[in-house]
Design a protein around this nucleic acid. Structure first.
Ligand SMILES: [Mn+2]
Ligand SMILES: [Mn+2]
Ligand SMILES: [Zn+2]
Ligand SMILES: [Zn+2]
Lengths: 144, 144
DNA sequence: GGCGCAAATGCTACTATGTTGCAAAACCAC
DNA sequence: GTGGTTTTGCAACATAGTAGCATTTGCGCC
């Protein structure tokens, strides 16, 4: 049970970042790793509650912030003023996202690089490019 | 003074959309047309106040919504949970944006097309692509 | 296993941004 | 100018996130 060699994927990510192994961090990462789409603070909180994991709203905010600062998760500002969080299961967070304008879901398009060939006006220093594709997801676009 | 043939740029945009010519709409458009960057609701409100144009917070929200719905202005969700508004002075709003991660300013990169050559997973219907470049603006990146 | 202490948590209160409902005022077609 | 529709102003409300601080917890060390 206390086998020190077998860390769950979530635990490995935390350990790799030298962070403390807290209940909330592991649970949140489990949720994010299992998620098909990026999730809001509220959705993650609901998932924790379902699992019976007691937690505070503020703690969840801080946990998510830590995950982002640590480079484990990434955060996106949505049209609905809610930030959405996700983990890239493979490699770094270098991919585009698809935002369904009907249901609001945001899915990571891993393996889909922006490939931005832009020449910026002078003086601007490019750090990274963020590409969000808008449209209808498979579920919402069914009868069109 | 009441020369019905000479509309200001702002007034022309409103007229072209068949909207009522209200003081707030004209003033807001003037502000947006003169702006170098996308502006938040608050920044626009401050600009109106400076010009001595009395207005209500809610009216400004509704005016901005109307401008966006009418296709005159565009709106972006920022990292700081504030929406930013701008008008494309030439052509439709089909361009990338640059977000300075240091000062938070957002500038429109008119004439800079995403040129997204992506093949989406099956079922996703693409409507439009939104490209945001992150980095440092000329002002913030000076001594780097 | 227990100690000590920094890091994380849980509370409460607070801020910032945007929304709703409704009566009064302003546009503008006539 | 008048009338009817749109827009405005106000007050109350909603949502997402933040700050301060006392308490608890993880974990390096013995
Ligand atoms: Mn992602
Ligand atoms: Mn723009
Ligand atoms: Zn959808
Ligand atoms: Zn800057």
């Amino acid at each position: 049970m206390s086998d020190h060699t077998s860390l769950s994927p979530a635990e490995s990510l935390i350990a790799a970042r030298g962070g403390r192994m807290t209940r909330t961090r592991v649970a949140v990462l489990d949720v994010l790793l299992a998620a098909e789409q990026s999730l809001t603070h509220d959705e993650i909180g609901a998932a924790l509650a379902e699992q019976g994991i007691k937690h505070d709203r503020v703690t969840l905010y801080r946990t998510l912030d830590w995950l982002v600062e640590s480079g484990v998760a990434h955060k996106m500002a949505g049209e609905d003023r809610a930030r959405r969080f996700g983990v890239a299961t493979s490699g770094p967070h270098e991919h585009a996202h698809f935002h369904c304008d009907r249901c609001g879901k945001v899915v990571c398009l891993e393996g889909l690089q922006p490939a931005v060939a832009v020449n910026l006006p002078g003086g601007y220093q490019l750090d990274r490019a963020e590409l969000v594709l808008h449209g209808a997801c498979p579920t919402c676009g069914k009868g069109t």
